[in-house]
Design a protein around this nucleic acid. Structure first.
Lengths: 138, 138
DNA sequence: AATTACCCTATCTTTTTTATAGGTTTTGTA
DNA sequence: TACAAAACCTATAAAAAAGATAGGGTAATT
């Protein structure tokens, strides 16, 4: 399951995606729409900004806005940013690799091999579905 | 990521799958092989037994053994059993459905629609890959 | 009858997630 | 130029989940 952080990130991106003609959107507008704590959402939006997905403007009349084209924001990017690895095991993660402590030889591990296949098929979906797909459905 | 519980379950199933000609396997043999706490593994094996995947025999010469044909043990079954939902959001889970509290109308939620697609493609993999696939690779 | 090993429940510890707090910096505007 | 509005930043607390442990009970085999 996705963490609430990631789910909220998707909500916020959807909200901002629907208001792209608008210059900026306040954190508060988003937090009220979804009943998310203002401060909690703040941290999430900051991360999305650091990742180059959102832009922001300080001061009066400021707020957040979507920088990227929605079709260039893959679900995988958002998930990795807020939740971490997509792979089901650390030993098959492309971005967060770690060996399994209990595993003597990864090369001979059948579980490892199958989970690589699972990872690749999951990525095939999550890399190709984007924010644009979410917006299309609203 | 899968919990350690689920990962250990897969290890245990693999171990048992490789020893199907043997009548029974001791918990201790499995826990030593992978460095898993005996008691922790005990709980996992119990759950696998209750789910009809493993059988057991008490007393001297007892232990656990695989009941099912490895190709009938889908990865999805093991994951759901130990980890719970496979879906990325509660509102799209087939087996553990719960509405999202922040969502006013699920029917109009684009995130919901996309996550249903993601779920279906994930299941397409996880329902069709089985313990047999793991054993084939060892 | 003794041994062996499964069965069950409860509790403790650690880690992760979720949430909060309080201040700092930047910007527009009166 | 001072003030207000809004994002920015860092740290910490609270809650929940995961991981691990303990100890005894029950059943089966020799």
């Amino acid at each position: 399951m996705l963490s609430k952080k990631t789910k909220y990130a998707f909500h916020a991106l959807t909200f901002l995606g629907k208001r792209r003609e608008q210059k900026t959107v306040l954190i508060q507008d988003i937090s009220e729409e979804y009943g998310i704590s203002h401060k909690f959402l703040e941290n999430i939006l900051l991360e999305l900004k650091k990742a180059g997905i959102l832009g922001s403007k300080k001061g009066k009349g400021g707020g957040y806005y979507l920088i990227k084209d929605p079709k260039d924001v893959a679900l995988s990017k958002v998930i990795r940013l807020l939740d971490g690895p997509i792979a089901l095991l650390p030993c098959v993660s492309l971005n967060y690799y770690e060996p399994c402590v209990e595993c003597k030889d990864e090369v001979k591990c059948g579980l490892n091999k199958v989970m690589i296949q699972v990872r690749d098929e999951m990525l095939n979906v999550l890399e190709n579905k984007t924010l644009a797909d979410i917006l299309d459905k609203e």
